[in-house]
Design a protein around this nucleic acid. Structure first.
Length: 210
DNA sequence: ATATCGATTATCT
DNA sequence: GATAATCGATATG
């Protein structure tokens, strides 16, 4: 069962993206739905984006309508739409005015699994199928019913929000750094953080190689 | 088990 | 008009 989680405060996010990314591993993403079950999943893979000086970041070209949340206060959700069908979730980092952020790439379901399957439009045959729920940034958003219209700008530090991030005391071990994936610029820097051997990490169908 | 490919649309230049 | 921080299907060894 899930231990009670306490929200992360604003100061947690008001730091550089690398630090926030590393420390977000093991934390819990929580979705409260009106009249639905609580959805919760432990964060097992994230990527840091460094803001305006990072060629791969959405903030690289400066502030636009789309990425405005990144330039606002830390701890808020930046949700964008990509490839005509997927949403991806980020959290704004650094003090207001600086556009660093962290992308949520994968999580391990803790509760509300059947509801997640519903949102994903799949039927679960067994625990091995849980991987299809939240392994990948697009899947994770679909499992949590995250959209830009609903969640962009949401305060992720407040349990009053429908979407927020909590700490349930879990201490992750075996943090691995790799280059970011799915991008073409700045692929040399190791800015992807994941939990060693965790089966919910995205990418390979079977994470045999970690 | 790994590689390649097409879908689909908000956003920006 | 071009692009894209993905996914799922198909092909191939």
């Amino acid at each position: 069962m899930m231990a009670p989680a306490s929200p992360l405060d604003r100061a947690f996010f008001a730091r550089r993206p690398r630090r926030v990314a590393r420390e977000l591993l093991g934390k819990v993403l929580v979705r409260r739905e009106h009249g639905g079950p609580i959805l919760a999943a432990r964060i097992v893979e994230v990527e840091a984006y460094l803001g305006e000086q990072d060629p791969a970041a959405h903030a690289a070209a400066g502030k636009t309508l789309r990425n405005a949340v990144l330039f606002g206060p830390p701890g808020h959700a930046y949700v964008y739409f990509i490839y005509g069908s997927h949403y991806c979730l980020n959290v704004s980092c650094e003090p207001e005015g600086r556009a660093g952020c962290v992308l949520f790439r994968a999580a391990e379901p803790l509760s509300g699994v059947e509801r997640m399957a519903q949102f994903r439009g799949i039927e679960l045959q067994g625990p091995q199928d849980w991987r299809k729920l939240t392994s990948g940034p697009g899947r994770l958003c679909q499992a949590f019913a995250i959209t830009r219209a609903r969640d962009n700008g949401c305060d992720l530090t407040s349990p009053a929000s429908s979407l927020w991030i909590g700490d349930d005391g879990f201490s992750p071990r075996g943090i691995v750094l790799t280059p970011r994936i799915g991008i073409v610029k700045a692929t040399d820097q190791p800015l992807r953080y994941l939990l060693h051997g965790n089966r919910f990490v995205s990418g390979l169908k079977r994470p045999s190689k970690l």
